[in-house]
Every structure is written in C-alpha cells, then in structure tokens.
Amino acid sequence: MQSQFKDKKVIATLVLPGIIIMLIAIAAPIIISLGLSFVKWTGFGKMKPIGFDNYLRIAKDPIFWKSISNVFILIFVTVFFQNTIAFILAMYLSNIGKKLSNIFRTIYFIPATLSLVVVTKLWVNIFNPSYGLLNKILAQIGLESLQHAWLGNTSTALGSVIWIIIWQGFGWALLFYYSGIVTVPDELREAAKVDGANKFTLYTRIIIPYIMPVIQAIIIIDVTSSLKQMEMIYLSTAGGPGDTTQFLALYLYQRAFKYSEYGYGNAISVIFVILAFTLTILIRKTFAKRLESL
C-alpha cells in the first residue's frame, strides 16, 4: 500500500470542510436538541428540568402514534405501490423505442422539477370542493355523488395527501428504474434468452438482481423522505382534519412552534432521529447480503 493513501494532510483537507459544515448545521443542533429534550421550555423564559418526563409523555401521546402510523402507511405505499408502478412503466418504456420513451419520460418527470410549494398549492386547488378541478370532472361525467371535500373529509384526506406526494415523487422513481434497466448489458439478456428464459424470469432472475443497488437507493430515499415529509402537509391540511394527516416531522414542528412546548418537540425529534437511523441501517443490512458495494 502506497503511503500516499495514508497522507494525513490530504485526508484532513478532503474531509474537514465537509464534516465541519455538517457539524455546524446538523450535529450541533442535534446535540442541543438532545439536551433540551429533558426540559420543559416554551422557547423563551425559564427552563425547567424534568428528566425523562417528555419521553414518558410520548409513549402515551395518541397523536404521536397516529403520526408514526401515518408515516408507515406512507412508506408502505411509496415502497410498494409507487415503486411497482414505476418499475413496470420503466420496463415498458425501455421497450418502446428511444424516441417515444424520451417523450414520455420527459413528461413524467415534469412534476419533480416543480417547487413543492407550487405542487401543494396546485393540488389544494384541485381538491377544493367549490372550484376545484376534481369535483368539476366528477360533475361532468355524472358522478356528482362522489364529489367531496377531498382534503377536508376524514376518510379521504390521508389518501389525497399521499396522492400529492406520489404525483410529485413518481417521476424520480421511474427515472431511477429506467436508467437502471437500460444499463443492463445486452449480453446478459441474450444469454438469458439462449437459456430459454421468458420475459418474467428475465426480469426476476437477471434484471432485478442487476439493478439491486438502484432499488436500495430508491427504498432508502423513499423511507427517509417519507419520514421527513412535512412541508407539503404543513401547507395543505396542517395535519387535519383532526389528526388524520398528522406526520411525525410536522408534529414535532407543531409541538415546538405552535404549542410552544419546545422540550417536548425536541424529545419527539430525538425519537425521530433514532427511528430514522435504525430504519436506514436495517435497509442497508437487508441489502448488504445481496451486494458488497455501497
């Protein structure tokens, strides 16, 4: 091994700027946050140390559990439905010729380029019961009975919110899968065909294993972004009606900034970080058996 690979000066130069920035903007606040999770504090005025009370309170807080369960619903939907659909479409798009597939991919990715604020506002307007697009469409095709206050109704709010998330996120998943599928070398496909593989086995035996790293990347992105989901809900339902669309990241924000229960908000975010970290490690462990890299 060359000594150059161990040059301390080089390593420091390469690593320190990035790590310092991460320490300033991420690690420092997390440590502050951990400390503040043991106090009762409105954000200003006196702090009162209360030990583990905030954590005990989390265990008994039904809204916290509701927001956790919503996060898992979202993870489930994005990981299974969004990914399956994106994968199937990517598969077809890789088969219909370059020109056509380019057009479709370009269109499908448009929502992903839009600002979240724009997307949210757009869909809040589409779902609006009095002038929204969706109810107008239902009226036109004679389905007035299905007209709804989509975001205002307890039975459709969560679904509608998830729909918005998928509408914007779908393009990313599709693009990842497509790029993965087209990188599968032709020799592999040919070899499989020679072995008499039909389309189904071609995909399950050759292509899916080949693009495993892509799948892992997408799933990690899905899980972390589901956990972090906040702005869109903040701007649309703010967690309502009731706690129907409450999500973890929004809930901790609301506890800290709306309820002024800053200590409690921080306790939730500590739990949040632990949860997110565990999930990420779990996913990586699951995949690690299948691939060495990453």
Binding site: I19, A25, P29, I30, G43, I281
Partner: peptide
Amino acid sequence: TRMEWKLKPLVWTVVIAGLTVPIHTTLLPN
C-alpha cells in the same frame, strides 16, 4: 472510500446518520 485512516468508520457513520436527520429538528437550535 480510497484512503486509509483510523477515524474513517466513525466519519462514515456520521455521514450516513446525516441522511436521517430531519431538517425540522435543526430549525430552532440552529
């Protein structure tokens, strides 16, 4: 990924952990 040093695993764990930190946790402390 390519160089040899002692603290490497620790730094890499920090990097991975960074992926999981929600922005919203950092708002007020920051």
